[in-house]
Computed example of a mutant assay.
Amino acid sequence: MEFRQLQYALQIAAERNFSRAADKLHIAQPSLSQQLSKLEKELGVVLFQRNTSSVELTYAGQVFVEKAGAILSAVELLRQEMSDISQLRTGSVVVGSMPITGAHLLPHVLPVFKRKYADIEITLLEDTSMNLEKLTAVGQTDLSLLSLPLEVPVLTYEVLGEERIDLAVPAEHPLSARQASGERTQLEELKDEPFIVLKEGQGFRTMTMELCQAAGFEPRIVFESNNMETVQSLVAAGMGVTLVPHFIARAPRSEFVPVYLPLAEPVPSRTLVIAYRKGRYMSKAAEAFIETFKSVVAGLQ
């Protein structure tokens, strides 16, 4: 059994897809399949059930992935502890980030961090919140920018802060006049509005659905996108309304800009966190990144 085979199996388990796993690992898909077959033959078990639409873990695969994740985490722990013992100023941190949230926060954080820790390498991994939780759980990231609640129980977190949720409407929408008046909008008022939302698998879509349901209605979804910028542009073009995290709402964008309105008390918000695996050794580089992130985000609120 080779160390790289453990990494390959974990990546396949995270992606549930050989092609995506091969892309993330930067190897050819036939090579990945060959290595997995070699591993399964050596172990005498089938780790993954393959079909035309998905790849699923067998029971043996579940046990293997859990143990392999622990082995890789132990190796990384040893490497990081030795690095810290040697008191090197160099280091590396793999940071997972939700693409849109990261796009509006990391440009504030990374320059500050690099000025203070010029020799620490930061590797950024962008994915949906659901996938980031899985990747963080198996050690593919040292830490990840996410929002509560977390679904994977082996993760813990440090709170960055609360981010309010705003309403976005087209400029010609009757509610847009409230921007000048300061009148706040109740979520219940949106029950008959067409909604544009993110696609399933993204944490903020789940939050949007839950906020609407708590207000007593199911949002009438007319369009979905993987990209929050697209969602906002479609709102600006008059196709519907949406909810937007405040850090994203306040950032400059393209010519298609909707009107942003604060919602009524109690103002909905999401809790942004830096998440990492419970019990994972936290390197000095990762600790420094967390402290820098917390300090910068506090200054933006």
Rank of each mutant, 00 (worst) to 15 (best):
residue 113 F to P: 00
residue 91 G to Q: 02
residue 102 G to V: 03
residue 158 E to L: 12
residue 246 H to D: 10
residue 274 I to W: 11
residue 35 Q to G: 07
residue 254 S to V: 04
residue 284 K to I: 10
residue 233 S to R: 10
residue 33 S to F: 13
residue 101 T to C: 09
residue 122 I to D: 04
residue 72 L to M: 12
residue 221 I to Q: 06
residue 129 S to V: 07
residue 251 A to T: 13
residue 140 Q to L: 14
residue 36 L to V: 10
residue 159 V to F: 01
residue 216 G to T: 08
residue 18 F to G: 02
residue 70 A to K: 14
residue 195 F to H: 09
residue 253 R to K: 13
residue 162 E to F: 11
residue 238 G to C: 03
residue 205 R to G: 00
residue 244 V to E: 00
residue 36 L to G: 02
residue 152 V to S: 13
residue 165 I to V: 12
residue 145 L to N: 07
residue 244 V to P: 04
residue 122 I to P: 03
residue 274 I to K: 08
residue 81 E to Q: 14
residue 294 K to I: 08
residue 106 L to K: 10
residue 69 G to N: 08
residue 51 N to R: 06
residue 201 G to L: 02
residue 225 S to T: 00
residue 138 V to R: 10
residue 184 R to T: 10
residue 261 L to R: 00
residue 201 G to S: 00
residue 59 Y to L: 15
residue 165 I to P: 00
residue 263 L to I: 01
residue 172 E to Q: 14
residue 121 E to G: 12
residue 196 I to P: 05
residue 234 L to V: 03
residue 117 Y to M: 06
residue 54 S to K: 07
residue 85 I to L: 14
residue 155 L to Q: 03
residue 234 L to T: 05
residue 202 Q to D: 12
residue 66 E to V: 13
residue 118 A to H: 12
residue 215 A to V: 05
residue 212 C to W: 08
residue 295 S to K: 09
residue 32 L to Q: 01
residue 293 F to Y: 09
residue 218 E to Q: 13
residue 154 V to M: 04
residue 24 K to Q: 15
residue 73 S to C: 12
residue 130 M to D: 15
residue 283 S to H: 04
residue 76 E to Q: 14
residue 102 G to W: 06
residue 19 S to E: 11
residue 59 Y to N: 15
residue 174 P to L: 01
residue 243 L to M: 03
residue 185 T to E: 01
residue 150 L to W: 00
residue 272 L to M: 09
residue 58 T to L: 08
residue 28 A to H: 15
residue 127 D to G: 08
residue 196 I to A: 03
residue 28 A to D: 14
residue 40 E to P: 04
residue 205 R to P: 02
residue 5 Q to L: 09
residue 55 V to L: 05
residue 77 L to V: 13
residue 128 T to R: 11
residue 12 I to A: 01
residue 167 L to V: 01
residue 34 Q to W: 08
residue 25 L to M: 12
residue 113 F to M: 02
residue 128 T to H: 04
residue 2 E to S: 14
residue 15 E to V: 01
residue 85 I to E: 11
residue 37 S to W: 10
residue 120 I to Y: 06
residue 50 R to I: 07
residue 191 K to H: 13
residue 15 E to T: 02
residue 74 A to G: 15
residue 202 Q to G: 01
residue 87 Q to G: 06
residue 105 L to E: 05
residue 75 V to S: 10
residue 18 F to I: 09
